[in-house]
Amino acid sequence: MIGIIAAIDEEIDFFIKNTEIIETSNDNNVIFYYLKKENRHIILAKSGAGKVNASMTVTKMIDKYKPEIIINRGIAGGLETVEVGNFVTGNKMVYYDVNMSSHRSNHQHGKVRGLPLEFTSDSKLVANFYNFCNENKITSLVGIIATGDYFVSNSTYLDNISREISNILAVDMESAAIAQVCYLHNVPFLSVRAISDIITTSYKNEEFTLNIKNACCKLAEQILGYICTI
């Protein structure tokens, strides 16, 4: 069984409309959809935005359904090195809003005490999805996704993040939290994001609003196709 977690309605609608729904269940306001596509069985959950919602949802999914792998998919803000509509596969996920350093300790920015600085996606899943996108002529980049509880739309704020964490391709609000839970439960994990907006000095909120639906559908279609190959 494959687990899929997304944050908002726009990110799950395509799956619901293009699969067979076997069952739905509600676990304390987390709705799980048991889906089937060809010979693949899928558990889909809408987590809601943010690290706490994401962590709670993936924990429930692992405890209740024990998926063999978990894919976190959704949208993200991109840096100027990517373009709207590109996919970013996170081979590494980091927190940009965690800072446990003080005059008594010397922890790297983003590192939770006792845990890795970076949480990694399963290398085989990353490679397979990258190859799948290439075969379908979809631009898919592999790199670092930075996660925090802030909707980043301000280039100055993004610059501050980039100074602490180098080589970021995208920022979101869930990936690292889900990756951390999967790391602790030893569940293979993959995070893929469609870029809905580019965060620059000329950023306009309309960009996100205009691109969100198309980005969500485009990524969902490819994820569903990919799932049917594994």
Score class of each variant (00 low, 15 high):
N131R: 09
I75M: 05
K60N: 13
E83G: 10
V98W: 06
M61R: 04
G74K: 07
D159F: 03
N136L: 13
V52C: 10
R73N: 11
L44G: 01
Q222W: 00
S140R: 10
A220E: 01
V58Y: 01
N160Q: 13
V126I: 15
L117E: 08
Y183D: 01
I42H: 04
I230F: 00
I2S: 06
N214A: 11
S155T: 08
N205W: 04
N134K: 15
K66T: 02
I230K: 08
V126S: 05
V142K: 14
Y183S: 02
T24W: 00
I4T: 05
S166M: 08
T200W: 00
I5A: 02
A177V: 04
V82C: 07
G77P: 02
I168V: 13
A170P: 03
S25C: 14
E221I: 01
G77K: 01
G48Y: 01
D172T: 02
I2R: 05
K124L: 14
A220Y: 00
R193W: 03
I71C: 01
S191M: 08
K137C: 10
N214R: 11
Y33P: 07
I8H: 02
Y130A: 15
S123L: 14
G78I: 04
E164N: 14
L184D: 12
D97H: 09
N128E: 15
Y95H: 12
G50W: 00
I22K: 15
R163E: 12
K111Q: 15
I198H: 03
I178K: 03
E10C: 12
A54E: 04
I223A: 01
E38S: 13
N205T: 08
N18G: 13
T139N: 14
K218F: 00
S123G: 12
V84A: 14
K92H: 07
F119V: 08
L125R: 06
E80A: 15
A220H: 02
I2D: 09
E38A: 15
N18Q: 13
E174F: 03
Y96F: 12
R40W: 12
I75L: 09
